[in-house]
Amino acid sequence: MREIAKLVLVLGLICGISAGSLSTVRTYLADRIEQQNDLFVRGPALELLLQQPAQDILANKLIIDSPEGQALLFYIMDTGRVSGLAIETVGKGGYGGDISLMLGVNMESNQLLGLEIIKHQETPGIGAQIEKTTFRNQWRKLSTRDPVRLIAAGGTIDGISGATYSTNAVMDGTQKAISAFNNSKDQISELIQQANSADQQIE
């Protein structure tokens, strides 16, 4: 009996110490890991969409609530006003799973700056063609006031033949991003104001 108690005690102690040390290290490193993740996964897309160094954009991160769920948002400022936004959403229904994408929005002209694919698992050579610039460039300069649609649905986007699922998932993500933007314009500007005034208070 004493032997079993000792076994349990020692094992429990080792597990306890390891859990303790891991969670301590985790609290120290969690922010840095998230920053690194943003820099490497989202950084390249953000630089292309907003034409600024990723380091400057990544600090301006917001999470907005919309009817379709939460969306991640980055913004850049130009002389005190928000000039550009990048909204990240997840398009459902791809052939290999969900597709994460980012849509850039010009706040002054209400036009799209472009589309970038963050993460996908589509078939190389078929569905993976959503990454091609010829496909993605179709999003440039579209207005956020009109819904973005495929040609078949009366819109302007020429889908990828043979990759209906992939195209539809990208359209789904696009629609979510645009509706998140249109539905929560006020919420967005309010949040940005809050974030900026909080910054000034810290300074």
Binding site: L11, I14, S18, L22, L29, I33
Partner: peptide
Amino acid sequence: VIIATLVVLVEMILQAY
């Protein structure tokens, strides 16, 4: 348990730096 703890540690350090 000891080895796995160290490996998780390495994982986090690599991700961070």
